[in-house]
Write a protein that binds this DNA or RNA. Structure first.
Lengths: 117, 117
DNA sequence: CTCACGTATTGACGAATTTCGATGAGTGGT
DNA sequence: ACCACTCATCGAAATTCGTCAATACGTGAG
């Protein structure tokens, strides 16, 4: 890496640019809250690894072992958080990962994976 | 900001290595839950930007406008999540950020900061 | 139009979370 | 030994969250 662009690397950079106000902390917490649930993390991982990169509700209830309204509820939260997109096609609603948003969690999740088991 | 070229990054890599099981998702959700609260995010940002890189409870109640038990409670959650360390010195308990753990959130938080406004 | 199907919403319930005041535990000075 | 101080824990109130059954909505087929 000749052109060292520390855009992403965490080295020597403060995690926060300064003390957060409540107004600043609120939206950040909201995003984290969206992924602070095992079911929603599983949803994201399931959808990311589908054949076509998208899935409808009916594809997701079985793997999770949850009712359809519950799955719909979690999906809505993920869409509102900007982590999923929803496109209606015919009777079905297809959900796909919102790449840029999900990528923000990429390095974090991959690092966790290594230190996990 | 136009020079945005992710270094460590996420390009072309899947965020999840595969569909998560409940057992895998659980600990991940736990970490996110720790930071899924405005008060706790403010605590982290406050402690990171103290003179000595550490703070006691009494330093933190005023900036947050919360009671001492409440602040203690949030600090405990952050310590248990591995995001803060606690060292008792005399009557005081000093809390400092756990660098490696907090750095995992670095790139994510900095990117959010830019797109916030 | 009507019906079947996939999905969203509503209402309800128990569980978890956030917050506080009161109290308990540990430390250091007098 | 006592007291003042810092912090943790307990108990409780208010709120939020996760879940489901029941129901409403919207779409395409017949």
């Amino acid at each position: 890496m000749s052109t060292a662009t520390p855009a992403d690397s965490a080295c020597c950079l403060p995690t926060f640019q300064g003390p957060l106000t409540t107004e600043e902390a609120e939206p950040l917490a909201a995003v984290f809250k969206a992924v602070a649930d095992p079911v929603r993390l599983r949803l994201l991982s399931l959808i990311e690894h589908t054949e076509d990169g998208e899935a409808c509700v009916c594809d997701l209830t079985a793997p999770l072992g949850l009712s359809q309204p519950t799955v719909s509820h979690h999906l809505k939260i993920l869409v509102e958080a900007g982590l999923l997109t929803r496109t209606q096609r015919g009777r079905w609603a297809y959900f796909a990962v919102q790449r840029p948003a999900l990528d923000e969690f990429g390095s974090l999740l991959r690092r966790r994976r290594e230190t996990a088991a």
